[in-house]
Computed example of a mutant assay.
Amino acid sequence: MDWFNSEKYKLSNCSRRYFDFENAELRLSKNSFDKYEEINKKLIGLVGDIDVRKINDETIIHLKKRLNEPTIISGEKRARSPARRNHFLVVLKNVLNFLKEVEGMQNIHSLSKIKKFKEEKKPVEVLTDEEIKVLLNSIGENCITKLRLKTLIICLLSTASRITAMLSLNKEDIDWEGGIVSVRGKGGKINQLIFDELSREYLKKYLAMRKDNCPALFATTNGTRLQVNCAERAIRNQGKRAGIKNRVYCHIFRKTSSSKMFFSGVPLPVISRYLSHSDLATTQRYYLRGANFEEVKQYHRTLDYSSLVNRK
């Protein structure tokens, strides 16, 4: 076999071409891109830098067995979650699909045979109005880092935005009159965010306190763009300081706002459009909390058949 041809078909080189393609097409956010690249390195560590034309049912079975083995996570030896294991299968499937559909490579393993691990459906985590009140009121406004954190949380609640999209914005992107901002989101799609009056009020207050020349909407005290990991850490720590029982993280504000809209009577298609989902099922499964019994009792009143009965 020609050496150059054999190198071309190695999983490492095929995946590199796939990631270059995704990067050029802007179909992945930077956060997703970095995560997929990290998983791909571990994937090659599990199955080896094999010739992609030799991937078959046995390869997939071997990979799944390796994924089921305990691994070191945050310094502890434990099993990967089904969702984490599925990330490996998704990356492999995406690479093979790229080779088949974009490069026209023949003899690629059937994608339909790469079955995901079954994931247990978890209840959607949201914050109550009282928890949001406690969280926001636990943050002072007397220094730039505290005001930045409070403003960021208010903006995430108002826009139901992903943290990556929010931190990609620049100051000049904000429409101070209408509050509508276009941003490139997950999958390279252009999404519209709506900043309400409260979020614009706090943005003005936060920007007025800043002394740097950084164009980013949210910046560090060193004048550089605020990064996702820093924002996540600050929000997580503030949740603990505020004594919030539920885990507080960036994405919970997106889930909280979508559930609040739904239980306020906003139709599901409207919420799905606001979240920039292409599938209503995604909105319903991952972003809407279940109803509690008090709400069931409240809406049970709509089942009134008394007017249909001729009492005798």
Score class of each variant (00 low, 15 high):
Tyr36Thr: 02
Asn292Ala: 02
Val95Gln: 03
Lys297Val: 10
Ser307Ile: 14
Gly265Asp: 06
Lys93Met: 07
Gln106Ile: 08
Val124Lys: 12
Phe253Ala: 10
Lys171Pro: 00
Glu58Trp: 14
Cys214Ile: 06
Ile44Phe: 01
Gly179Val: 08
Ser29His: 09
Ser257Pro: 00
Lys204Gln: 10
Ala216Asp: 12
Ala208Arg: 11
Lys146Gln: 15
Asp196Asn: 12
His300Cys: 13
Asp196Cys: 10
Leu149His: 07
Cys143Tyr: 05
Leu207His: 01
Phe33His: 08
Lys30Gly: 07
Gly188Gln: 05
Val126Trp: 00
Tyr18Asn: 12
Leu46Gln: 02
Leu136Glu: 05
Met105Asn: 02
Glu119Met: 05
Thr59His: 09
Glu25Ser: 06
Gln192Tyr: 09
Tyr202Cys: 09
Thr145Lys: 08
Leu135Val: 09
Glu120Thr: 12
Lys240Gly: 04
Ile194Phe: 08
Thr151His: 09
Ser306Leu: 11
Ile163Glu: 07
Gly45Leu: 04
Ile73Ser: 09
Lys35Tyr: 15
Lys186Glu: 11
Lys255Pro: 08
Asp175Ile: 13
Gly223Ala: 14
Ser12Leu: 05
Ile163Pro: 03
Leu152Asn: 04
Lys186Trp: 05
Ser278Thr: 15
His62Cys: 05
Val309Ser: 01
Ser264Glu: 07
Ser199Pro: 00
Ile108Thr: 10
Asp196Gln: 05
Glu130Val: 11
Asn97Gly: 07
Lys312Ala: 12
Met105His: 08
Arg200Gly: 02
Gly48Asp: 07
Gly223Ile: 08
Leu152Trp: 07
Arg184Glu: 13
Gly45Val: 05
Asn94Lys: 05
